[in-house]
Structures are given as C-alpha cells and as structure tokens.
C-alpha cells in the first residue's frame, strides 16, 4: 500500500517536472513574443560534440535576431527523425533546419515539410530534393589538408593506415580526399580499418595496437577520419613506446588540440569552421524570410583550418 502511494507520488512528480521542463523555453526564451520567427532544428546526432557545437552556434546567432529556436534530438534514430519532421511541419515554424544526418533517409519528413510549405535548410548534411540549401564543410578539402599534413610529418615517404567510417557521408568524402592525396604523393595505403561507433576511441586503439604488432615497422602514419579514432591511435602508439608513427585527425575538437600541443604522435587536425557555417545558414534563412530571396546554390562548402602545434 505504502509502495503504491510512493509510486503515485513519484508519477505525479515526474509529470509535474515534465510540464515545467516543457514550459521553460517558452517562458524564458520568447524574446520576440507572438510574432517572433520560429525555427525548429532537428538532429539525430546531438550526442556528437561537433554537431552540438554547430547547433549551439546557430541557436545563439538566431536568438540574437530575436528568433525562437527549438532543438529536437532523435539520438541516432532515423525513423524518429522522419516523425520529428512531421511533428515540426504540423506546427508550421518559419523554417526547419536539419542538423547533420543523411537527407536521403528522411524523404518522408521532407515531404511533410514541403506539404506544409515550411522551407528546410541543412547544416553539414547533404544535397537533396526538398532541402533549399545545405551548408557544410568541404569534406574533401578537410581530408586533403589532413593527408598533406600527415605526409609532411612523415617526411614525404612511408606507408599509412586509414581509420575510416564509410556509413557517414562526410567522413567518407574526407577519406576519398585523403586517398587521392596519398596516391598522388606515392604513399602506399597499407590498410583501411573501419572504426565502430559508439566506442570509437577504444575500437581504434585496439585496431592500431594489433596493426602495430602485425606490421608496426611498415607503418609511418595513421590517418583518421575524425578526432576520436585519432586519439585512440595516439594512445596505442604511446603505449607501445613508438616514436616514428604520426597521426592526424579531422574536426579540431578540444581534446585533439590539447593532444597536438603535447608534441606526441598526434600532429594535426583540421577544424571545421562551424561559426561561418552556422552564420551562413542564419543569413540564408533571414534572406528568404525578409523578401523571399532563394539561395543561389543548393550546396555551400566552406574550407577548414589546419591546426598544428603552435
């Protein structure tokens, strides 16, 4: 009996806190009142540091203009991503922004938005029917820049191992860019290793440890598609006490920059220009809402910045 009462109380408390939580943004963030521009950002990858960063920058930029920005995360669930688009379309915001993710998997959601007449923009996703414009880093450029930095650290010769993740279109494009650079420079790619997500750091560490024991003497560089596997590779190399293998990553996350500053195997990463990317999306939406200016391109690709030891 007592247990039942406790449970009832707990349920009531949960409902109450949910209601409070759902009210909060409306009370605190409605800077523009009834007529404020509302933008819904929908993302499957808020757990990813880079995605989170760019969405926060976008929200801040939008709120400066008095927009009300709502963020919906589906935690990697592409099916829910479609439902989130349908839900958002029903509320008819001024625009919907897809925050990373593969637009080919959300044709259903894009159709719902089109039917409701809500324009859709995307950050670091891909070109697709139903998306007014996609603003992203030039992933091929990110791959090329990091591959060139690796070749330089290797003294222009040797062989490399690539840590890849082809299901992610951005990482795939980086790998293609890097591959081309290695080929042109006459650097052999010994092996391409797929990195599992979640748990990319530990997975990369294990793979690199095994590669070192199998053919450590042949490897002089490790190219990683993003910073987390690069960190795992660095740790495996450090643990093995090897000093002649260099590592590069992409993304320019804080931990990667800290690792590069230590002067160990991790020599470079390429930071995506999230600030310019988010500002560009805000500018495109503003132009459309102001006087109906349509974006002049379906895809905008901004270059990254190479980060090496200062």
């Amino acid at each position: 009996m007592k247990l039942k009462r406790t449970l009832t109380a707990l349920s009531l408390a949960t409902v109450a806190s949910l209601m409070l939580a759902s009210c909060a943004p409306g009370d605190g963030g409605a800077t523009g009142g009834e007529n404020a521009v509302t933008v819904t950002v929908i993302t499957p990858y808020l757990a990813n540091a880079a995605t989170k960063e760019v969405i926060e920058l976008f929200s801040a930029e939008g709120e400066k203009l008095g927009w009300q920005v709502n963020v919906v995360d589906t935690a990697g669930d592409m099916n829910k991503l479609n439902s989130a688009f349908q839900d958002a379309a029903a509320q008819k915001p001024d625009a919907i922004v897809l925050g990373t993710g593969d637009p080919t998997q959300i044709s259903l959601g894009l159709k719902a938005a089109a039917d409701a007449g809500v324009p859709v923009f995307s950050i670091d996703a891909g070109e697709a029917d139903g998306i007014a414009a996609n603003v992203t880093s030039d992933n091929t450029d990110l791959g090329e820049q990091s591959a060139n930095a690796l070749i330089e650290a290797m003294g222009g010769q040797g062989a490399v191992v690539m840590l890849t993740h082809d299901p992610h279109p951005g990482v795939r494009a980086r790998a293609e860019g890097a591959r081309k650079v290695f080929k042109q420079a006459g650097i052999e790619v010994l092996e391409e290793k797929h990195v599992n997500v979640p748990g990319p750091v530990d997975d990369a560490r294990t793979s690199v440890q095994d590669i070192i024991s199998a053919r450590g003497s042949e490897v002089s560089g490790i190219w990683a598609g993003w910073d987390e596997p690069a960190l795992g590779a660095t740790q495996a190399i450090d643990a093995a006490g090897i000093t002649d293998i260099s590592v590069v990553g992409v993304d320019g996350q804080d931990f990667a920059i800290a690792e590069i500053e230590k002067g160990g195997p991790f020599v470079a990463t390429v930071k995506q220009d999230w600030k310019s990317i988010s500002a560009k999306v805000v500018a495109l939406i503003s132009a459309l809402l102001l006087d109906g200016t349509q974006p002049d391109q379906k895809q905008y690709e901004l270059p990254g910045t190479l980060v090496t030891k200062k």
């Binding site: 979640p198 750091v201 530990d202 987390e228 960190l231 740790q235």
Partner: peptide, 8 residues
C-alpha cells in the same frame, strides 16, 4: 582513454 566519453 585518459578521457571521459558519454558513450565509450
């Protein structure tokens, strides 16, 4: 891993 990751 010398670091904490939310899904490690």
């Amino acid at each position: 891993l010398a670091s904490g990751h939310p899904s490690a």
